[in-house]
Amino acid sequence: MSIDAIDRRIIAATQAGLPVTSEPYAEIAGQLGLDVEVLMARMRAMQERGVIRRIALAPNHYALGMTANGMSVWDVQDDRATELGAQVGALDFVSHCYLRPRAEGWPYNLFAMVHGSSRDEVEAKRAVISDLLGPACRAKDILYSTRILKKTGLRIRGEG
């Protein structure tokens, strides 16, 4: 998934968002001194390569009432972890889903962030995951966040 210097400039110019105007791509192209057709072709190519995951609107889930979330963690038997992880990730209430290494005192290898309008709802959705994993899951837990200690965006620079 390599990106060249022009792609990098496009990423830097659009990572905070697109202008909400009639011709947003022409506006970005103008800022970068590119032809709009070139810019659109490059963005389509990045989308095909998976560098752009999607172009979309991200609703603020807190504003829309999804105020509860928990990091659910699962000890899933290794030979089924990829298959089951894919099924958990596809659920519409899971916003992040990863396999990670276990650690001493930490038997869990599957992490899934679960969202809902209340903690009860999160627990109900967690039960759905538990049913889906079945006997392939040997241990489980959920960690609720009690405080944001730091939050900064991930940003790249346009040059270099």
Partner: peptide
């Protein structure tokens, strides 16, 4: 309407979502 939704705080982002690893890092 999208501008209004953004002002209300109903939208957090509008635009491309990049793969963090693909961006280098």
């Amino acid at each position: 309407r999208i501008r209004h939704l953004r002002e209300l705080g109903a939208i957090t982002r509008f635009g491309p979502f990049y793969d963090a690893a693909a961006m280098g890092g």
